[in-house]
């Protein structure tokens, strides 16, 4: 608990003396028109300081993933502004943007090309950006995510889920971005593997000074990785709060409180009389 609190205060201090690394202002994402119109994200605003981790929490359809996808260009920015490192993001995004912002996807079984070896997957971003010494950097990237050189020429089907997610993280980090967008990076993994990936993400952030935005439905995961978070529902931000507040169960919003209750596991309190009959 103490460590989380001190981390928070340093992040806040950093935020005071620096421009935010990421600033989202009144972001709207709209799909379709007429009666097919879906407002996936409605006027969501938040900002993240350099080196901080920010969580977006919510259930399916809350628009949390859409916010991430709008930042990186996989969803349209219908209105509002997105600033990355002080610069407003304009369509189409240039190569410099992709060097600054990278993403890790939810399902490691879907995010790696099934016919490409790890080597090919990792060398692709280097080739796109005309980087040299691919050899050295691929091996270094593998090392950073805790994999040895023996993984370099494997195909995805020769890797476990956790190893695949490590490769996906290595791919995202190989261009040395400043911001990493994490879309439910552990929800497709087993609990023990989730712990490994969370530890890795924690460590990488510290070492490389990365800024994270983590999307998750799991409050405990968000509280573990992030200092601040936004609870979303039906495309809107419901409450911005801190990990510390979550841990102490202080939530001003009823929905947030409901999520906190649910994350503690099943409670038989409401049906106690029924189960007593067993």
């Amino acid at each position: 608990m103490m460590s989380a609190r001190s981390r928070l205060s340093t992040a806040t201090l950093l935020g005071l003396c620096k421009d935010p690394m990421l600033d989202i202002q009144k972001l709207k994402v709209v799909y379709g028109t007429g009666h097919l119109r879906v407002d996936a994200v409605k006027d969501v605003s938040f900002h993240v300081e350099a080196g901080a981790a920010y969580g977006l929490v919510g259930e399916s359809g809350s628009g949390k993933s859409t916010v991430l996808r709008a930042i990186c260009g996989l969803a349209p920015i219908s209105a509002g502004q997105v600033f990355v490192d002080g610069k407003e993001v304009k369509e189409p995004r240039d190569k410099a943007f992709y060097r600054t912002v990278q993403m890790v996807f939810q399902d490691p079984y879907a995010s790696l090309h099934p016919r490409h070896t790890v080597d090919r997957t990792l060398s692709e971003p280097l080739a796109i950006h005309g980087e040299r010494d691919a050899e050295v950097r691929i091996l270094q990237a593998l090392r950073e995510v805790g994999l040895g050189p023996s993984f370099r020429f494997r195909y995805p089907h020769q890797l476990s889920g956790g190893q695949r997610q490590r490769i996906a993280i290595a791919r995202a980090l190989i261009l040395r971005p400043k911001v990493l967008l994490l879309d439910e990076p552990t929800s497709a993994l087993d609990a023990s593997v989730q712990a490994e990936i969370l530890n890795l993400l924690d460590e990488l952030r510290r070492k490389m000074g990365l800024t994270y935005i983590l999307v998750s439905h799991d409050l405990a995961v968000v509280a573990h990785l992030c200092e601040r978070l936004l609870v979303m529902r039906h495309g809107e931000g419901v409450e911005e709060t801190t990990a510390v507040a979550l841990r102490t169960g202080r939530a001003s919003n009823a929905y947030t409180q409901e999520l906190i209750e649910a994350s503690r596991g099943f409670s038989r309190d409401t049906v106690k009389t029924a189960s007593a009959a067993l």
């Binding site: 989380a4 609990a191 023990s192 989730q194 712990a195 509280a223 573990h224 841990r247 994350s263």
Partner: peptide, 20 residues
Amino acid sequence: QGLMRCLPTLADDVRPLPTL
């Protein structure tokens, strides 16, 4: 035991998480 411990919880902040 390992499965129990490796889950992050709201109750306490263990860092790094114990792995299995």
